[in-house]
Design a protein around this nucleic acid. Structure first.
Lengths: 341, 341
DNA sequence: GCAAACCACGAAAACGTTTTCGTGTTGATA
DNA sequence: TATCAACACGAAAACGTTTTCGTGGTTTGC
């Protein structure tokens, strides 16, 4: 900006002090009506807006919160952001979004950046690399320093901070129960590495469901995707074994959609030969053919709740209150890919 | 934060002046090595980081840019953001993302917020409501005040600022040519209202292709979706007329996917009975069955270019240079939904 | 023995606000 | 005529930095 209008410039224009201008613009009765009007008219004409940096510096708060997510081209995260954003705006807060790109280093950098006065609080979903390393010091020092922090989805159990999660275990359990109900006999799971907490929980739900249906655990039916390699090849192998699965529980939408593609390419029918259920109710699930049954995580609601808790933390920083943890219950959405036969 | 460590506190600790501490931390030779080491050790121990607000205020720049997009649950916009973000980070810039939710008012608010010192430059894709109103004063005053501004995708032609667009006309033209090549005789377009510039351009490409193939313009084959109502109903009507289309050019992914669903529900085969091509190469296109031919806009590259131009504007604010406009050429991606018969 | 140079540090301004506490000028009151 | 309030405004501190320009004290050079 070439030269934004400031209090100082207005003051010089009217040959009064900065304080006078400030008060006049705030309608202070200390300033004569005459001068007040003139100053306000002038300021208005030049679209005067107080400089945010200066305000924040003085008030020691920015009315801004930061969000760090692993990636943004991702339906679930964007819905969460929508939720956060809406409630934040309603409460007069701005939102800064940062991407960790699943990298530990970028997460640390983002955290440092945000912590240095820019934001009043932070909402995070932890990066995979961080989870894998098990290195959480950057978060620990943050909460130690009293920075309000809320984690969602991928949270760190050992950390004492606000949290919003899905009931991933329960959702996995229900999803698999549903697959058994529609007649699956050999139920496979396509999941992430176990260090991704949410994936691990969903797998536990899968195992619980197996147990309750007196199904033996078959390691050949448990696929941990290694994202360093092509996903489709790994999934294809699942079906190339002697005794291929007739039901798939995928812990995210991409895995589910990829599985669907492969199943169809192999000439099998969905849901008759293979029933599939995914996770995250995104566009893919709705528009695929057949449409994909899925676990709706309600990202928007997670976002709302995350901000609500964060606001709580911000407003009660002095009090050393217990950090709230909220669990948003996912719902099963039954579509064509698991319709009863 | 309870009490971040500041220069002042360090100064008190060592009973020296603030200036001394500042210099010591910057390895100034003005400070004795002994004192320097001690101060640095102390600062290090307490994780001292200069307060960004103070720095920004002093330097009159924030090394931060703002992005305003209409919505975030949208593949194209998120890919653009990824591009911006990557290049921004490489250049030491932070990114603030704001959502206008297609609302004029929120756009104005966001713009004001960002302009008050927080950011050094702004990248925007204009909201639909703004385009409809034709009210661009908020942008005009912004550029008048010398704020570096780059628009992408939905730009305002009359505004003199940096711009990155797709060749929407050319893409529409090519997409329709392709449909004619695969044998379509009655080619329909599913588009937005004409005030959405990109939609209008794509439609022009459609018309041009019609003309070149000596096809008459049939208003019954031109569908302007009204997003206030259900999309599917409107598309369904397209096929319920006497002489339904055998080819669909949809100006975005959602329209294309919805059309595919409806066509299939009507018992028609894709691409044999109806060929379909969409826009934006997102997840839906890749994972739908049949997979969707589409126009890839290369959002990531658009993002890269947008930041490149913005950086240019930021670094040459003094010079009154011409504002660059860059056109990123989209590519046709041929998949199953338009495979040659 | 005295100026010059050097060393190691401090004071203060600047960025743009807000707010507390003056302070000089009126006009009214006792 | 002295006192007091009301009025209308200004000075200054504070938020946390950086940087320019001192400034005392010591060392060097002649």
């Amino acid at each position: 900006m070439k030269s934004k209008i400031t209090l100082k410039k207005i003051a010089k224009e009217f040959d009064v002090s900065i304080s006078t201008v400030s008060k006049a613009l705030k309608n202070s009765h200390e300033i004569s009506e005459d001068l007040r009007d003139k100053i306000q008219a002038f300021a208005n004409y030049y679209h005067y807006k107080p400089n945010s940096l200066a305000l924040n510096l003085r008030n020691q708060k920015s009315k801004t919160i930061g969000i760090i997510i692993p990636e943004i081209v991702h339906h679930f995260f964007t819905t969460v952001i929508s939720g956060i954003e809406q409630l934040a705006n309603e409460n007069g807060y701005n939102v800064i979004i940062c991407l960790s790109n699943e990298s530990y280093e970028k997460e640390v950098l983002n955290l440092e950046m945000l912590a240095n006065g820019i934001v009043d609080g932070i909402i995070v979903s932890v990066s995979k690399e961080t989870l894998k390393k098990g290195e959480f010091e950057h978060f620990e020092t943050l909460v130690m320093n009293g920075m309000p922090l809320v984690m969602f989805d991928r949270v760190i159990d050992s950390l004492d901070c606000g949290k919003v999660t899905s009931d991933d275990f329960g959702a996995g359990y229900l999803a698999c129960n549903h697959l058994f109900e529609v007649g699956c006999k050999r139920l496979a799971i396509i999941t992430t590495d176990d260090f991704v907490t949410v994936g691990a929980q969903r797998k536990k739900g899968y195992l619980k469901s197996l147990e309750e249906h007196q199904m033996a655990i078959d390691e050949n039916l448990i696929l941990h995707i290694d994202e360093q390699f092509e996903i489709s090849g790994q999934i294809e192998n699942l079906f190339k074994q002697n005794n291929p699965p007739d039901g798939i529980f995928a812990v995210n939408e991409i895995y589910a959609a990829t599985a669907m593609k492969i199943v169809q390419e192999l000439g099998k029918k969905i849901p008759d030969d293979v029933a599939i259920i995914g996770f995250t109710d995104g566009f893919i699930s709705k528009f695929s053919t057949p449409s994909l049954s899925t676990v709706a995580q309600h990202g928007f609601r997670i976002g709302l709740k995350a901000f609500e808790i964060l606001l709580d933390e911000i407003e009660h920083q002095d009090l050393d209150v217990l950090h709230r943890t909220e669990v948003i219950k996912p719902d099963l959405i039954i579509r064509e890919s698991t319709k009863k036969m």
